[in-house]
């Protein structure tokens, strides 16, 4: 039985390979560089996010996410562009989400890698585009398959008065890393409503800043509706980036509610 089942899978994979070859035989018009994820939306993404800027696919921009999402409301994603020099911004988007843009990360003094969770409405490539100092966008990504529906469901928090009392509450912790740097993980209580659930307007954190104890900005995340409810972010700081005593977390949501917390060591 087990052998048969295995052979079945092999045959399906074989069949899928045939089909891919057949599809690939078509000319792909007007794409300078072929999308490694073969998404029919790539040209639209290129037009929308990069316009005349130079864009290349670059395996050094690594996006880790499960091939199959167990929960379309919280798909774990890690972006790592630390193999690139001088990364100024990392843009994250999902080709087939009703709201494409997930977040824009300005690593500043932090390493150019970030962990977070997103909502997916349907199976989609999840991509990260890292802009290096030369102005070139370098794009990596991965397909995530999901049952979907993550963007049109009401958040748990939208229906709970308790959530409103805890709105923008920050929890977080700092871990020393073997390289002498630090890892910072933060959670902010927020419904992150997409505006796509009937009767519930978009309500989400727009801006999250990690700063040192003196208030100097270390890294910044501009987030959008597809970031999961009660967002959790993972930052990595190189040795000496933070100040000795504490880190500050600031920001606001799109209704102007401030975020203000201190994470001590």
């Amino acid at each position: 039985m087990r052998f048969r089942s295995f052979s079945l899978r092999c045959l399906v994979v074989l069949a899928a390979t045939f089909a891919v070859v057949a599809v690939d035989a078509q000319p792909l018009i007007g794409i300078g560089e072929r999308d490694p994820l073969e998404s029919s939306r790539w040209r639209d993404m290129q037009r929308q996010f990069f316009r005349d800027a130079q864009v290349v696919f670059d395996p050094r921009v690594r996006v880790s996410a499960p091939a199959v999402a167990e929960d379309p409301l919280a798909v774990p994603v890690a972006v790592d562009a630390s193999a690139l020099p001088e990364v100024e911004e990392i843009l994250v988007f999902a080709d087939f989400n009703p709201i494409l843009k997930v977040l824009s990360f300005h690593p500043g003094a932090a390493r150019p890698n970030l962990g977070f969770r997103i909502k997916l409405q349907q199976s989609s490539p999840v991509r990260a585009a890292a802009r290096t100092r030369d102005g070139v966008w370098r794009v990596g990504g991965t397909w995530v398959n999901t049952t979907g529906g993550g963007c049109t469901l009401p958040s748990t928090g939208s229906g709970s008065p308790e959530w409103q009392e805890r709105l923008n509450e920050v929890s977080g912790r700092i871990w020393p890393r073997v390289d002498g740097g630090e890892r910072v993980r933060l959670m902010v209580i927020h419904p992150m409503d997409t505006g796509l659930a009937p009767g519930i307007p978009a309500f989400y954190i727009e801006d999250l800043v990690l700063a040192d104890g003196a208030g100097n900005e270390l890294a910044r995340v501009e987030s959008f509706e597809p970031v999961s409810e009660n967002p959790v972010f993972t930052f990595d700081l190189p040795p000496g980036a933070g100040s000795a005593d504490a880190l500050r977390v600031g920001g606001r949501d799109n209704n102007g509610n401030p975020i203000d917390g201190r994470v001590t060591r």
Binding site: R173, M187, V232, G261
Partner: peptide, 12 residues
């Protein structure tokens, strides 16, 4: 959440 709650945090 349990791990983060053990971190040193003051909110607001």
């Amino acid at each position: 959440q349990a791990a983060l709650a053990a971190g040193g945090v003051r909110s607001r």
